Amino acid sequence: MTEFGFIEQIRRLFAPIPDQGFEGIGDDCAVLPLAGGEALVFTADLLTEGVHFLRHATSARELGGKSLAVNLSDVASMGARPVATLLSIALPRDAAQSWALEFIEGYRTLSERYSTPLVGGDTTRSEAGITINVTAIGRAPLTHLKRRRDARPGDVIFAAGELGASGAGLRDLLAGRLDTPLAALHRNPVPQVDEGVWFGSRPEVHAMMDLSDGLASDLRHILDLSHVGAEIDLEQIPVAAGSDLQTALCGGEDYKLLLTADTASAERLTAEFRTRFGTPLYPIGRITSEAGLTWLRNGRPEPHDWQGFSHY
């Protein structure tokens, strides 16, 4: 069973149970509308030793920050600002003392940066490696929330940063090159929290998510839920220095925002983003009414079976 086949089974099994007002499975966060036009969003993410990180290649402090960062990125991708987190962690004996304290220091540093308190969680013993689960809660006006299902034919597709640096950094780590700049970047992702809130306030932005598994996989979630297709201009992909095109499309863990926006407002959005954040917003393609993902080079289709990270 694939990851998304399993998720679909879960969706079907729970469909008869009343949703209690929640918008559930499908986006980076579940949504709970509140009185007064506000909403809370909720997300949870797991990091497992040997799958998501190598303890010998990642310091406890770095892992504490990364565990939080990947969840804040999910909140930002909805156009919301994070307001609190919960942390659950299973630790083996050799990580239950100084390692655990350093982990919490890293988690606290990023929490302080984004004014996001840790308000609860759980700890337990592990007999086989470290497992970390973070639940992040965000808040935003309901009208500011961005969902994967809202892309429209004609929209411009944007990436809010360069791609492939984290994938190239992972390649360095696996080769034993632990002290390269790209390896450090892979271990220390920066969630686009302020950018996500800003995009949430922009009505011309329609669909949005963060890039965790690689554009080649993540974009398909927007296409499937919006019942649209896309054309991606390969020469427009913002490949990070030290990476390559395939890694930029398939490597994952860049945690940059991927969004679609009305074509009539695209130039203004790009210019105002650069003014606000000092970095480019990269147009990489367009949404089409015909289903499917088409890779273009100089306007001509190229057949590629590119896929991002698979959890199973």
Rank of each mutant, 00 (worst) to 15 (best):
T2C: 05
E3M: 11
F4M: 13
F6G: 10
F6C: 12
I10L: 14
R12I: 11
R12T: 13
L13I: 05
L13Y: 02
F14E: 11
I17A: 10
Q20T: 06
Q20N: 10
E23C: 09
G24V: 05
I25N: 01
D28K: 02
A35I: 06
L40P: 00
L40V: 04
F42Q: 01
T43H: 09
T43A: 10
D45C: 08
G50K: 11
R55F: 06
R61T: 09
G65C: 05
V70W: 03
N71M: 08
L72C: 08
S73N: 01
D74T: 02
V75K: 01
S77Q: 03
G79M: 02
A84D: 11
L87T: 07
L87C: 12
L91S: 02
P92I: 00
P92M: 00
R93F: 03
R93E: 13
D94I: 01
D94C: 02
A95H: 11
A95S: 12
A100H: 14
L101D: 02
E102K: 12
F103N: 01
I104K: 05
T109I: 09
Y114I: 05
Y114P: 02
S115V: 15
T116F: 08
T116G: 05
P117K: 04
D122R: 15
T123Y: 11
T123A: 15
R125G: 04
A128T: 07
I132N: 07
N133R: 15
N133P: 00
T135C: 11
I137T: 08
R139V: 10
H144D: 13
L145Q: 12
K146F: 03
R147C: 13
R149T: 13
D150N: 15
R152K: 14
D155G: 06
D155W: 04
F158Q: 08
A160L: 10
L163T: 07
L163A: 09
A165C: 09
L170P: 00
L170S: 07
R171G: 10
L178R: 14
L178C: 12
P181W: 01
P189F: 14
V190P: 09
P191Y: 08
Q192K: 14
D194E: 15
D194F: 09
V197C: 09
G200A: 11
S201V: 06
S201A: 15
P203F: 13
H206N: 12
H206L: 00
A207E: 00
A207H: 00
M209Y: 00
D210V: 00
L211V: 13
S212T: 10
L215P: 02
L215E: 04
D218I: 09
L223V: 07
H227M: 12
H227V: 13
I232M: 04
I232W: 02
D233P: 02
D233R: 13
L234Y: 03
Q236I: 03
G242F: 03
G242T: 04
G242W: 02
D244C: 10
G251H: 07
D254T: 06
L257M: 05
L258N: 04
L259Y: 08
T263Q: 14
T263L: 08
A264K: 15
S265W: 11
A266M: 10
R268N: 14
T270V: 06
T270E: 11
A271D: 15
F273T: 05
F273W: 15
G278W: 05
G285A: 03
T288E: 04
A291F: 11
A291G: 14
T294A: 08
E302K: 11
H304T: 01
D305N: 12
Q307D: 07
Q307N: 10
S310G: 07
